[in-house]
Amino acid sequence: MDDEAPGVEAWKKQTSAFDRVRSVAGTVSGPQPVSYIATEAHVAENTARSHLERLVEMNVLMKRDIGGAAMYEPDPLHTRVQTLRDLLDEYDHDGLLQLKAELQEQVETWAREYGVESPEALRRRAAESADAAETREIRETANDWALLLYRLDIVEQAIENYTAYSRDSPAPAG
């Protein structure tokens, strides 16, 4: 591991080994072995393994056997529940309904503006554009659109389950 890389010294000063293992393992895109997490988190492999096992017990990560090797990846349910909780803490039922409407309106605006029905179709449009600046703009919009659909799905889950999930839940009218 390269302790001389920019920012590593400050990162190690500001965080514990557990913080770093959790942060790295919690943001990987797919299953990774202990060696990868240890290198990226700047901790010894034994330390990483111990923290990873604890994070599996906490349901932050999932452990899988792939080709005979233990691999760790984020539990998508954990991220979803965190986002759900943040939404319920920030918005009441009416606020969630308004947020849903705003997100849907944004999606409809992009669909109308670009004449496509999905971020995947928009991404194909980006690949066809000959203008570099336009390609980048379209690609960014496609990414934003995909992220918005993910968030919209969780907002709808929050609305459907508001009474059950809300901390102080007077039942919504209607």
């Binding site: 942060s23 895109s29 797919g30 984020p74 998508p76 991220t79 965190q82 995909a146 992220l147 659909l149």
Partner: peptide, 25 residues
């Protein structure tokens, strides 16, 4: 390398990355 993409969702992975970036900042 991670290999198995059966449950991969780019938007979910991206949202998780943004949450992690927010926490580190």
């Amino acid at each position: 390398m991670s290999g198995d993409d059966s449950s991969y969702d780019a938007a979910e992975a991206s949202h998780r990355a943004l949450r992690g970036i927010q926490r580190e900042l």
